[in-house]
Design a protein around this nucleic acid. Sequence first.
RNA 1: GGUCCCGUGGAGCAGUACGGAGUGCUCGCCGCCCUGUCAAGGCGGAGGUCGCGGGUUCAAAUCCCGUCGGGACCGCCA
Length: 593
Amino acid sequence: MYRTHLAGTLSAADVDQQVTLVGWVARRRDHGGVEFVDLRDASGVVQVVFRDSEAASAAHELRNEFCIEITGVVAQRPEGNENPELPTGWIEVTADSLTVLSEAAPLPFQIDEHIDVSEDVRYRHRYLDLRRPGAAAALRLRSRANHIAREVLIGDDFVEIETPTLTRSTPEGARDFLVPVRLQPGSWYALPQSPQLFKQLLMVAGFERYFQIARCYRDEDFRADRQPEFTQLDVEASFVTQEDVVDLAERITAGLWRELADYELPRPLPQLTWHEAMDRFGSDKPDLRFGQELTELTDHLRGTSFRVFSGAIEAGGYVGAVVMPGGASQTRRELDGWQDWAKARGAKGLAYVVLDAETGEPKGPVAKNLSEEHLAGLADAVGAKAGDAVFFAASADRREAQELLGAARLEIGRRCGLIDRDAWAFCWIVDAPMFEPTDEGGWSAVHHPFTSPNPEWIDKFESDPGNALTYSYDIVCNGNEIAGGSIRIHDRGVQSRVFDVLGLSHEDAQEKFGFLLEGLKYGAPPHGGIAFGWDRVCALLAKTDSIREVIAFPKTGAGQDPLTDAPTPITPEQRAEAGIDFVPETGPHEAED
RNA sequence: GGUCCCGUGGAGCAGUACGGAGUGCUCGCCGCCCUGUCAAGGCGGAGGUCGCGGGUUCAAAUCCCGUCGGGACCGCCA
């Protein structure tokens, strides 16, 4: 044992104790005759005093982040020299010996909670970044989150099972990462996008209750909340209803927020249907921390001569609005800025009417195009007051218009300071549609092709795929989807009818996931589950915007690991051995170079 | 695939709209001083191809074009 005590745990109770401590020089204050060193270990910091000893002269040579061992006596600090900012601020250790275990070169950046360093530099030297207690706390929190989830699940007799990470390409939405196979040139593994199919097979296997903290891989472009490899808390159970999974997921979520955010989840959480969420908030993951709900005006504005609106209405589409409180005081330039904002989102524009702050009279370019009658009831219809701005979206595609308004609502929330940063607002989004139209005129699965239609639709989803609803449920927290799941199809007949709607032939289905269909033959139990986006859950609990903060060694937006510099070119030998240049005989002969 | 922002000693910034000597700030680093500090203090010092490559100009950190890197967003991601 190197040490007798942990630096951060020393207190007045240890006064007069002889202690040996190890750790890093967090900071030193050299006064010539006396020197103070803040010694940091994983438990915290304590002040070490060097004075009148051999150790004291050696201490002058110390520099920040040297790794040292000291022996000394714990003492009460002299009257007036206590530091109430530190948990150990009432005591100090008077050192009588010092051993430098490891010197530190000058640092690429200062290890200091008070100083901002760019992410680039921090992650290149992440091992130094993580010496900052604040940065390390995010990973410690994640460890506790893992533990809390395991406690709930194991308490419910769930079995933690690992599934392969070298597997076959699965039929889900994202691009796969591929791994060449040396022993079978031309054949490749894929890294799993999720353990979806394996967990269903574990249900066929009779485990009844499975979970895993699973690494998943998707080869898509990145965002602040996406990494090429990410983690799900993956859960599946047999003989469960939607209510059972909802209850379990709420207990996991409640446990996390109770212990890590000191917040008692109001259970049961409110449930919105997918359509209700779209109608009211223009999003399938609404941020319920503020109001500004959308108002549908399709009926109110019927008969208008304004072509932007009438075109959408006559096409059976949607016209709606969202209110920006106080938005009438925006300059023309700011109002034009909203047009650019909408265009950047692929919309044609964002029509608006401002209500005069004094008279409430509707003004603006769009107001001129609307009749007296339509303008008259507008403010009441959308719940706007004098001085507000009303933004409109119209489209033959209801969802498209609603999503534009939903994005505008969020932007209004941000710009007008309507979002309480300390608030938590959870809800479930249930009854999502089964299918959405593809560009080619067919249908694709909104969730995934194994999601069960709900009882209302199970016998007739193919007659009206656009309106069919699923047994699905997502937890949304402050506008983030933190978990999503569904009751799965366990009946082969239903499954093949779903494939028919998706335009997937029997042969294609067999080719892509015949192993799952084969498994479903042998007495597959009814089952369902849910998966938490674990990085996002931890980021929310850590109160950070970026999931990178809760990942030990995250990648940059281009998928580069700033620490190892991966991915890197391979040697010609590796290339030859991996067999990646293998050209299939029947395939197009397009070998590069 | 598209849009926007950033790139200046080791870190973080200012300087760039309107071209005029690498100018400045905070911190760190090195040396000296200092016996109660705690984001210690004082004095002195070192350290920069202004991301890179072209172009315009008597003259470019500054203007133009291209490119690389980082960040954010749209598309994409059940």
